[in-house]
Nucleic acid binder design. Sequence first.
DNA 1: GCGACAG
DNA 2: ATCTTGTCGC
Length: 257
Amino acid sequence: MRISRGPSEGYVRSKVPKGFHLEIARKIQTALAGRVIEDDLISIDSVDLVTGIDVAYINRGSTEIGVSVASTYSISKSLIIEWSCWIGPIYFPYVPTLLSFRELKPVVNAYLRLRTKSQVILIDGHGRAHPYRLGIASHFGVCMHIPTIGVAKSLLYGRVDRVEGPILDISTDEVIGWAIQCAPSKPTYVSVGYGLSLRSAVDLVKRLCVGSQMPIPILHSHNMANNLKKRIIGKLMSKASINELDNECRISMSNYL
DNA sequence: GCGACAG
DNA sequence: ATCTTGTCGC
């Protein structure tokens, strides 16, 4: 049994940058959450191409660099058919419940560089399993109008009573996601991002988790992001050099088309 | 009162 | 998530 209530507003306020208006951010999240569709916009059985996106970070004093990768997996071919990357500066800190404000830009940029568009996007993080019902997966889905699923390794908000079972809202008992176990002793938390039912989301993620905590598309993006990161570490990070690194990564991803 | 807390 | 030494297991 595991319980999480999410961070207090006081804690969140203390972490947010000066000049950032939390009350406005909450209004945006609430408004966008109201536009989330939880029905199947596509038939889950017809899905073949699934994209997974992940972001790695490089920290050096005051400068922070984001390395994002999007990988598209073909279920019928059992292969990653394409991947893309983006490298750029990150300005917003990690604040629980506000992950979108930090990661949405790198996630979207990596996605937009894919040549072949897929039918479903898997994003590391939650979807509806969020105190304001708008985790990064839902934020991405509502903005891009593409079916998305949130896949996380730990809980941000909600209650889970069984190893495999529903993620319930602490106060309303509403089902906001589902916990599954694809890897021994390692939970995988699935929640609707946009344009899919929870049932379909869970089915698809289960199909893509081959004995690992995370599904293949996200796993591949995670590995690629870390590989790129290793090649970058050691180099300087001025404004111009960051842009150069981004151009280099664009070239390397083009070589795989 | 203290601590919880996606990546 | 990232940083980071030694340690355990295949």
